[in-house]
């Protein structure tokens, strides 16, 4: 899934570890969007994926100076663009 600029779009769960990406879209309810927004995860924001715990465990990302653990299902609703 490459767009015209050669950037790759994918769900956060598929982003490789230690890679930077920009959030493109958060699907799911506005409740989820608000929650993530409060923690600094919103469309347009850059983040660094630190790790993901196997067996559908949480994805750990760094946004700004905070480290946030996002459940696997929720992370699947966040589309990112690898930088």
């Amino acid at each position: 899934m490459e767009n015209e600029k050669g950037e790759k779009r994918m769900p956060l769960t598929r982003l490789p570890e230690k890679k930077r990406a920009r959030v493109v879209e958060i699907t799911g309810g506005s409740h989820l969007r608000d929650k993530l927004m409060g923690m600094g995860v919103y469309a347009g924001r850059e983040l660094l994926k630190l790790s993901c715990i196997g067996l559908r465990g949480p994805v750990v990302v760094k946004v700004g100076r905070s480290v946030v653990a996002i459940g696997y299902g929720m992370a699947g609703k966040i589309t990112v663009e690898a930088l």
Binding site: M39, P58, S66, V67, V68, A69, G71, M74
Partner: peptide, 9 residues
């Protein structure tokens, strides 16, 4: 519900 948590230093 899903896990969403800020990890403190």
């Amino acid at each position: 519900p899903e896990f969403l948590l800020e990890i403190p230093p």
